[in-house]
Amino acid sequence: MKKITIFAILFISITFSSQGQDVGKWRAGSPFKLTGGVYTLTCFVSRPDEEWAYDAKIKKLNVLKENQEWIKTQALKYGFSVDFSESGHLGLKEDIKLPSIESGTGSGKEPVNLVSQVLYKAGYKSTLDLFDWVKHHTKAENLQVIIFAKGQGRGYSMASSSAMNKEKYFVEGTVLYETSTSGKESSTSAIAHEILHLYGAWDLYKTFCQTAENEKKARELFPNSVMLKVSNNLNSLEVDKVTAWRIEWNNEPEEWYESFRGDCRQ
């Protein structure tokens, strides 16, 4: 098995597209609950004719650390603790090369097997080898994979359900691009937004599975929600109480919370 190198410092959610099929139970993958220890594996990927600059990688890792510190602070406000101290990386010295990398567009049709593709390319025979390694060599209860892809695109998360192939989809993660679709620096808060999706958070702005009506309602109730708006100032954002309920930080839900599900399957 490939040994993971420990590294000290370290917008939209894709749901399984299977209309007319049983999608099973969601939140059935490697990140179980956003409390306790979380092992974060970061991966830097690029196409054969491209290469990440090393300083750009370090910058992304620092932004990731900033987002995780913010999540820890938000968890404490709800009386929970999260520990992101255990982590590893792949592709820091030399990029993991993929034949092609599809740019996220917000369509909901992006590929959701990128985690398994990257792990196989990195040398894993099975994605579950990574999960087993984390389980037996760390104190973390959760495993999340953060893929930084060279190029432009709109980040998205890849959540798993009990009806999906365990080998391909059990290890969950999110992909974030070097820049946005416009070529500008991606918003700082995009990382926290996508991480929260892995634990059950819904988008609160209009998407392929969220309604314009719910976005309007969210703007009135939670104008600073990280699931509603983007910002380079994380301290201007918050985890709203509906999102806190979805990620199991709020154990006193109100009936109207469910109305924010929209058309999302999760």
Rank of each mutant, 00 (worst) to 15 (best):
M1A: 11
K3H: 13
I4S: 06
F7N: 07
A8P: 03
I9K: 14
I12V: 15
I12D: 01
S13N: 09
S13R: 10
T15H: 01
F16V: 09
D22W: 10
W26L: 07
W26C: 06
G29R: 00
P31Y: 05
K33F: 11
L34K: 02
G36F: 04
G37M: 04
V38N: 12
L41R: 07
C43V: 13
D49A: 02
A53C: 12
A53I: 10
Y54K: 12
K60S: 10
K60I: 05
K60E: 13
N62E: 13
K65W: 12
E66D: 11
Q68P: 04
I71W: 01
K72S: 15
Q74S: 07
K77H: 03
G79P: 03
S81R: 13
V82R: 00
S87E: 04
L90N: 02
G91E: 00
L92M: 08
K93E: 15
E94T: 08
I96K: 00
I96L: 08
I101Q: 03
T105A: 14
E110C: 07
P111F: 04
P111C: 11
N113T: 03
S116A: 10
L119F: 03
K121W: 02
S126L: 05
T127Q: 13
D129I: 05
L130N: 06
H136M: 12
T138Q: 14
E141D: 15
E141A: 11
I146Q: 05
G151T: 01
R154M: 15
G155H: 00
Y156C: 04
S157A: 04
A159K: 07
A163C: 07
N165K: 10
G173S: 03
T174D: 02
V175A: 05
Y177D: 07
S180Y: 09
T181I: 12
K184W: 12
E185A: 07
T188M: 15
A190G: 09
A190H: 05
H193W: 09
H193Y: 11
H197D: 00
H197C: 01
Y199Q: 01
A201F: 01
L204N: 05
Y205L: 09
F208W: 14
C209L: 05
C209D: 11
E213M: 08
N214I: 03
K217L: 11
A218Y: 02
N224W: 03
K229Y: 14
S231A: 12
D240N: 14
K241E: 15
W245E: 09
W245R: 05
E248A: 09
W249H: 13
W249D: 03
P253W: 09
E254Y: 06
W256V: 08
F260L: 05
R261A: 14
D263R: 09
R265C: 13
R265H: 13
